[in-house]
Design a protein around this nucleic acid. Structure first.
Lengths: 200, 200
DNA sequence: GTGATTTGTGCATTATATTTCACAGACTCC
DNA sequence: GGAGTCTGTGAAATATAATGCACAAATCAC
């Protein structure tokens, strides 16, 4: 993948910027309009850059990188270097305690569906309250260490190390580590554009 | 080091580009004029970029990177990432045999003097003939593996593993590996602007 | 000292990146 | 069907990157 298009004066770097920006933008769920506004540039420019047809300036690329929470180098980096072990982790959540954090490890974006792999960690006694995800979203948890209580709207589940749980996340929910040791777990999120999927 | 100057709209990236370009240019002994010509840009532009006062385009930075034998990322990279383990090795020499090559590991550029650390490797039976360095240059060799014969204008030295040699390199000289195994050695070069130093 | 080379600055000119708008196609939702 | 959002394209206007030249200051060679 990531073959160059060789338009007019299309440099390899331009194509890297184009690919990296588009990928990161879709991963974070921004439209061109939103991202362009956040970055303080025109949408027209963003279109050109994502098409690999614009020889942007350093400042412009930097604005976009910042708006996406990426470093300049991340945006410019060719896919060849550290290919799949990408610029991710992104969207890191850092709790008040040092041992409480979460990071996005992988992200697969397809036309109809998006899959994200997260790694979570909760310090002893800590908890996390989440808002409802988009309609149709499902989460699949797998506890690596310690124990985890998942509080849903109507029910509650307590998972021990090695146990897993699937639940619809289009509702408010929360994670609780009521144990005395840190809890680590992986979390897969399956998301759909709007509500395109039927129940299983 | 490498504090930002905060001129007009000086981004951190601009300063990185400025620092990296100037360092690489001096390391390779180019004047602004020469580098600008090789890169196909105006010297005026190069002056601005090296001063961190110009918001250059991707294409311009890429031209400069190519002219210096560097990748785009190398030029943009902040000094913080892999700080001293820099973009180097540069100026790689590759012999006809795969085991014969040399690379520049470190380079310290000061107003009056430049020190370079190289790592050389010569395949069994291979040799390398060097032109005279600038007047006043000295080399310090240290053999890591195998044996090395250094042929100077008036004399010849044969070094075994662990032995070292200092000699004035402002004369033609050559390295010979007359052994049956590959030879590796480090080489420090001490250079002066023109001939500013007195003999010891 | 003079002469040559390198580097930094100011300014007018040219090239082009960037903006703003208006519009068309593709898609989802109602 | 129409109304909505998202995305790509075109063209004119504007901002600015990039050029070229002339000149001053510093450094090194002689």
């Amino acid at each position: 993948m990531a073959m160059s298009k060789e338009a007019n004066g299309s440099l390899q770097v331009m194509q890297n910027v184009a690919d990296n920006l588009r990928l990161a933008r879709l991963q974070q769920g921004y439209s061109q309009e939103v991202l362009a506004t956040r970055a303080g540039i025109s949408r027209r420019m963003l279109v050109n850059i994502e098409a690999g047809e614009s020889n942007a300036s350093i400042a412009t690329v930097d604005k976009l990188a910042s708006a996406l929470g990426l470093s300049f180098v991340d945006v410019v980096r060719p896919p060849s270097s550290s290919d799949k072990a990408r610029a991710l982790p992104l969207r890191i959540w850092q709790g008040e305690q040092a041992d409480s954090h979460a990071s996005l490890l992988e992200s697969v974006v397809k036309p109809g569906v998006t899959l994200e792999l997260w790694r979570w960690q909760l310090a002893a006694g800590d908890s996390y309250h989440a808002e409802a995800d988009a309609p149709g979203c499902h989460e699949v948890l797998y506890v690596l260490q310690g124990s985890l209580q998942v509080q849903l709207a109507q029910q509650s589940h307590t998972l021990q190390t090695g146990q897993s749980l699937t639940f619809a996340s289009d509702q408010v929910y929360s994670y609780h580590n009521r144990d005395a040791v840190a809890c680590a777990f992986t979390k897969n999120i399956l998301m759909y554009p709007h509500g395109t999927q039927s129940a299983e």
